[in-house]
C-alpha cells in the first residue's frame, strides 16, 4: 500500500509529471505520432489527395505513424563501415535527449513548475542550442559528402536564427521584467502578441528556422543533399533524426504560447482543482493549434536558399528583433505591464 501511494505521489509530483508525462515524454510521443499524420493529411487536403488512409480507416489512417514507427524499430539499422562510430551512434540519442530536456522548464499552471528556477526561459532556449551541435556530430560522423554539406548548412542556419531567437525572447523578458515563464504568463494581462507583435513575428520565424520546417528545411534539402546530415541513418536512428525537428518545434510552440499567447490563461478552474497540471490543457491546445498552422505551411511554401535564409535572419529579422527590444523598453517605461 505504501509503495503504491508513494509511486502515485512520485508520478503526480511536478518534477516527474512535467518532463515525463505532460507536457514531456509521453505527450511528446503522442504529439509526434499525431502531428506527422496531421501534417500529411493537411498537405493532402490542399493537394487534391487523401493522404494516409488505410491504417485504421474509420479514423482516416490516424495511426499511420504508429505503423511507420514500428517499421523503424524492426528495420535493420545499418552502420556503414566508413562512419566514425561513436558520434554516429551517439549523436541521435543525445539530440533526442536534449530535445526532451527543455520540457523540464515548462510550467503548466500557476504553481506547477517541474523544475523551479527563476530563469526558465533562458534555460529552455539554451538547452535547445545543443541540438545543432549534435547534428554537426552526425554530419561529421557520417563521413558522407552529402552529410557534411548538410552539417555546414546546419552551422550556417544556427548563425541565422539563434541570435534573433534569443533577442526576441529577451525583449519579452524586458517587457515582463522576468526571465521566468510562469511569471511571464501572470504578467500578461493582454496577450504578449498584441503588446509586442514584432517580437512575436521574429520569434515565430526563428523557431521555424530552428526546427528546420518549411520554408526553411534547408538542412535536409532533399533535392540537393538527399537527407543532409541524416543521409546515412536508417532504421530507428533515422526515426529519431526525423522526430527531433518536431519535438523541438513542439517545445517552441509551448514557449511561444507562454510568452505571447498568455499561456494557460484563462485558467480552466475545475480541471485545475482536480489536479494542477490539468490546468495546462489550454496551454497545450494553443500550442498544438500553432503547431498545426506551422505544418500547414508545408503546403504553401517551398524551400528558401541558404544565403536567402541567412539574409532573412540578419537583414530582416535581426533589425526587427532590435526594434522589438526598444518597443519592449518603451512599453516598460510607459508602464503598460
Amino acid at each position: 500500500m505504501g509503495l503504491v501511494s508513494s509511486l502515485v505521489r512520485l508520478v503526480l509530483s511536478p518534477q516527474f509529471f512535467g518532463p515525463i508525462v505532460f507536457p514531456g515524454l509521453v505527450t511528446v510521443l503522442a504529439v509526434l505520432l499525431s502531428i506527422i499524420w496531421v501534417e500529411r493529411k493537411i498537405a493532402a487536403r490542399v493537394q487534391m489527395r487523401v493522404g494516409p488512409l488505410y491504417i485504421l480507416r474509420p479514423l482516416g489512417g490516424a495511426i499511420q505513424m504508429l505503423a511507420d514507427g514500428l517499421r523503424f524499430f524492426f528495420q535493420e539499422f545499418i552502420v556503414p563501415e566508413t562512419v566514425d562510430r561513436v558520434p554516429f551512434l551517439l549523436a541521435p540519442v543525445v539530440a533526442m535527449s536534449f530535445a526532451m530536456l527543455p520540457f523540464a522548464f515548462v510550467p503548466l499552471a500557476p504553481n506547477f513548475k517541474p523544475y523551479t528556477v527563476p530563469y526558465s526561459m533562458p534555460a529552455f532556449l539554451g538547452l535547445n542550442t545543443v541540438i545543432p551541435l549534435t547534428v554537426l556530430a552526425m554530419a561529421w560522423g557520417s563521413n558522407n559528402k552529402f552529410s557534411i554539406q548538410g552539417g555546414i548548412r546546419e552551422a550556417y542556419m544556427t548563425i541565422a536564427y539563434e541570435a534573433v531567437l534569443f533577442i526576441s525572447a529577451y525583449s519579452m523578458a524586458l517587457l515582463y521584467h522576468t526571465l521566468d515563464f510562469a511569471e511571464m504568463v501572470e504578467a500578461q494581462k493582454v496577450p504578449g502578441i498584441l503588446l509586442n507583435p514584432i517580437s512575436a513575428l521574429v520569434f515565430f520565424i526563428a523557431m521555424i528556422m530552428s526546427a528546420g520546417k518549411l520554408p526553411f528545411d534547408i538542412v535536409e534539402g532533399e533535392q540537393e543533399i538527399v537527407a543532409g546530415p541524416f543521409t546515412e541513418y536508417s532504421g530507428i536512428a533515422f526515426g529519431l533524426t526525423m522526430g527531433i525537428g518536431y519535438v523541438q518545434l513542439y517545445g517552441f510552440t509551448l514557449a511561444f504560447t507562454l510568452m505571447y499567447l498568455s499561456g494557460w490563461e484563462p485558467l480552466v478552474a475545475p480541471l485545475y482543482s482536480i489536479y494542477p497540471a490539468l490546468g495546462g490543457i489550454l496551454l497545450f491546445v494553443k500550442a498544438y493549434l500553432l503547431l498545426v498552422f506551422i505544418v500547414f505551411l508545408r503546403a504553401v511554401y517551398g524551400r528558401y536558399r541558404l544565403d536567402q535564409a541567412l539574409r532573412i535572419g540578419w537583414r530582416t529579422l535581426f533589425p526587427l528583433a532590435i526594434v522589438s527590444v526598444f518597443l519592449s523598453i518603451a512599453l516598460g517605461v510607459i508602464g503598460v505591464v
Partner: peptide
Amino acid sequence: TGLKYLVKPNR
C-alpha cells in the same frame, strides 16, 4: 490560397 483548399478541398 492554401487555407482555401484546406477548407474546401478538390480531391
